[in-house]
Every structure is written in structure tokens, then in C-alpha cells.
Amino acid sequence: EIHIRTNGEEQARKVYKMLAKRNYDVKIEQHNGQWVVTAS
């Protein structure tokens, strides 16, 4: 499982799309105001 911390919604969405293209199961979560993308 991969966790990627991003500094904002826009970046989180870019990372989300990139990983989704590679057939990862991707989730975006917010932790303490930080956007974290989780891929498995």
C-alpha cells in the first residue's frame, strides 16, 4: 500500500488520476487538513 501526502486538493487529484490509470485502487483522505492519497 502506498501513502502519498500532498499539499492540496489539486495535487491530490493529479496523483489520484495518475495512480488510477495504473489500475491501483485509490482513495483520497484528509488527515489534519492534509490530503493523503492511498493506493493499493
Results as ranks from 00 to 15, higher is better:
Tyr16Ala: 15
Asp25Lys: 14
Lys27Tyr: 07
Lys14Val: 07
Ile4Tyr: 13
Gln30Trp: 10
Lys17Leu: 12
Gly33Ser: 05
Val37Leu: 04
Ile2Leu: 08
Met18Val: 07
Tyr24Met: 09
Gly33Thr: 04
Val37Thr: 01
Val37Gly: 00
Gln11Ile: 10
Asn23Arg: 08
Ile28Glu: 00
Met18Trp: 15
Tyr24Arg: 06
Arg5Ala: 07
Tyr16Gly: 10
Gln34Pro: 01
Arg13Leu: 10
Ala20Asp: 03
Gln34Glu: 10
His31Asp: 09
Lys21Ala: 14
Asn7Ile: 09
Lys21Gln: 12
Trp35Ile: 01
Arg5Leu: 12
Lys17Gln: 12
Lys27His: 08
Val26Met: 02
Trp35Val: 01
Arg5Asn: 05
Asn7Phe: 12
Glu9Trp: 14
Gln30Phe: 14
Asn32Phe: 07
Tyr16Asn: 02
Ser40Gly: 06
Lys14Ala: 10
Lys14Trp: 14
Ile2His: 05
Glu1Gly: 10
Gln34Ser: 08
Thr38Tyr: 09
Trp35Pro: 00
Val15Gly: 00
Thr38Trp: 09
Ser40Tyr: 11
Ile28Met: 08
Lys17Phe: 10
His3Leu: 13
Leu19Tyr: 06
Thr6Asp: 02
Thr38Met: 08
Ile4Lys: 01
Glu1Pro: 11
His31Glu: 10
Ala12Pro: 00
Arg5Tyr: 15
Lys14Thr: 06
Leu19His: 01
His3Lys: 14
Glu9His: 07
Asn32Leu: 07
Asn23Ser: 07
Met18Phe: 14
His3Asp: 03
Ala12Thr: 02
Glu10Gln: 10
Glu29Tyr: 15
Ile2Pro: 02
Ala20Phe: 08
Asp25Gly: 06
Gly33His: 07
Lys21Met: 13
Arg22Ile: 06
Leu19Thr: 00
Met18Cys: 15
Lys14His: 07
Asn7Leu: 10
Glu10Thr: 09
Ala39Lys: 04
Arg5Met: 11
Gly8Ser: 15
Leu19Trp: 05
Glu29Ser: 11
His31Asn: 09
Arg13Phe: 07
Val37Pro: 00
Tyr16Met: 13
Ala20Tyr: 07
Arg5Glu: 06
Ile4Ala: 02
Val36Ala: 04
Val36Glu: 04
Leu19Phe: 09
Gly8Arg: 13
Gln34Ala: 09
Gln11Asp: 08
